[in-house]
Amino acid sequence: MKKIAKVALFSFHENRRNQNFYILLLFAFMLMAAGFLFSRFSTDVEERIIRDAGLGAIEFFAFLSAVFLAARQLISEIESKTIYTILTKPIPRSRYFLGRYCGVTGVILFGILIMGILLTGLLFLKGKAGSLNSDYYLAYVNIYFKILMITALSFFFSLLSTSVLSSMVFTGFLWIIGHLSEEIKFLAREASPLLFNTVRLAYWIFPNFSYLNTKSFPADAAAFGYPVAVWSILYVFSYTAVFLIMSIMIFGKKDL
């Protein structure tokens, strides 16, 4: 556990100093600022525009961070051979892997928190404290849950792919699929049995971010009657754990 924490801290500092991280942060700030400016055109829904544009910018930042940091973390280390001098120190590959995962998700959380404080402060200063309800804070939790899942997936696929670019493209693809799972499943109902079953299989393999959205929460899951939060937590942690375990198994036996 101590070694995982050491690698995570190292990874956090390394990624925090990476210029890409600040470029993404700046980009997200600009999106938030654009939302703020647009809100001036409509005083009726000003609060909603600032809040939704802000949360959207934060989620977009988190997603881009996962693409630029997570998708390339291990693969670029292997390509650049920087990993050699670390793995020739007394640390098991599994702990190194988990440390890296925690470091990347940690630095993205750091970015989400910085932007979250800014957005909350902005809403507060605008006298819109009424929008700072539990749904607002829950949105941050859900964004981070998505990051936990997509980062685990991204690490997994980066171990299988041969280039940084393909790993990044795949992460982007999974992010989009994850947001459209329910729609794709719905559309596939009209398709042939073969296609329907293929889609159903993919539905269980690919991430399904509907579990993190109260408005589009899957009806199948809702039928069980458990609170949405319980489902969300169970789904996120079990899905993430499965991909982390598979990644550790691959990484443990990978020729470097």
Partner: peptide, 14 residues
């Protein structure tokens, strides 16, 4: 065991 690589590959931001 200590290892000296042929080319020095390290993390540039550290």
């Amino acid at each position: 065991v200590g290892y000296l690589p042929e080319v020095s590959y390290y993390f540039p931001y550290m």
